[in-house]
Simulated scan of single mutants.
Amino acid sequence: MSTIYKFDESYLKRAFDNRWVFDCAVIDRHAVSFILFSRVAKDDGNRVLCSVSFGANANLEGRKYTGFLFPLLGTAPNLGKTSVMLGRVKSVAVHGDAGDGMWPDIPRSDQGPLSSGPKNLSTIDGRLYVCGGWRHVCYLDDDQTWVSIRANLTDPPAEKVTDYGFDAIAGFNANDIYAVGGEGDVWRYDGKLWRQCAVPTNMLMESVCCAGDGNVYVGLQSGGLMRGREDSWEVIHEDRMSVPFKDIVWFQDRLWCTSEYGLWTLDAKGRLVDADVPPEVRACAGNLSAADGVMLLGGLGGAAICDGKAWHRLY
């Protein structure tokens, strides 16, 4: 194992024993964060938000919480080395330079940052962006307030709200953001206004990645994949998986997709194939995060990190 990612096992054991990774995020190439659940037959409501630092200042810090239903994890670089945990219904907790503990919930109203619970989050241009149902989007500003960028977005028809977005968000930068959800509901934000994109499918849209090759990749129901930008799109893969991809990231000039059932990449011919990784790494499938030249994989089977040259199993 790389010296950088060599860690005193007693520290990891203290946090990870009898727990599994529900979500993970790269803070930078020397620090990562996790949401951990108790490894029990029935969810006991206990969560741990923790960060692991590697290298000369190796350390593990965290705090236990309750009440976070199916939480999301992201990072807010504009607030320093800060991880943010959001509950799907309510609750906000942070760990790092911006504090260590609970924050007020994201305000909710028809015209506010969110009208319902958060569905997905993404770090774009150093800020944490959050999307929710009824086509709501906001970001965490430098003064620790949530700022709506709903702008000209309109409510979808009330009788079919589940057919519309948003369920996932990603961006090339703050002036080129894509939010997707429901049955083919794709929108692009140019820094001022949102515009709906014309797409060739009404399949459910579950995840999205603004990739280094200039394309936007959208994870569809049953493990499908759509590629494109603005009004030019194509479905490049259809499947019959029981679950969609949870996370899609771009790393080392390649697209990576994961769910709890595996880890996949796109090959040179644009085909979705099983990732060529060691079995002990594949066992960690579930969640992906990539930033600062490293990629983190975490799930029921543990966690592993790729430093750009090799994979290192963390526990």
Rank of each mutant, 00 (worst) to 15 (best):
F22T: 15
G101H: 04
S53A: 09
P71Q: 07
H30I: 04
D97A: 09
V52D: 03
I35F: 04
V32Y: 02
K90A: 13
G45I: 08
K90H: 12
L69N: 15
F54I: 08
W103M: 13
T82N: 12
F68K: 04
V40C: 04
F34A: 08
M102N: 14
G74F: 08
G55N: 09
S51H: 14
S83P: 09
H95N: 12
L36D: 00
G99H: 12
N57D: 15
L79E: 13
G101M: 02
K42I: 15
V94G: 06
V84L: 02
H95K: 11
L36S: 00
H95W: 15
S91R: 09
G55V: 07
V92F: 01
G62R: 00
E61R: 10
S38G: 00
N46Y: 00
R47Q: 14
A93R: 05
S83C: 07
I35S: 05
V40K: 01
R29N: 12
H95S: 09
R88E: 15
V92S: 02
V92H: 02
M102V: 08
A56V: 13
G101Q: 08
P71W: 03
G45R: 12
S33W: 06
A41N: 10
G67V: 05
A56N: 07
V92D: 07
G80T: 13
R47H: 06
L72K: 10
N59Q: 12
D100L: 05
W20V: 06
S33A: 15
K42Q: 14
R88K: 10
V26M: 06
F37K: 00
S51G: 14
V48Y: 00
V52E: 08
R29Y: 14
T82A: 05
D97Q: 13
V92Q: 04
L79V: 07
K81A: 05
H30M: 09
I27Q: 06
N57E: 10
V26G: 05
G67K: 03
C50T: 11
I27N: 09
P77Y: 07
A58F: 11
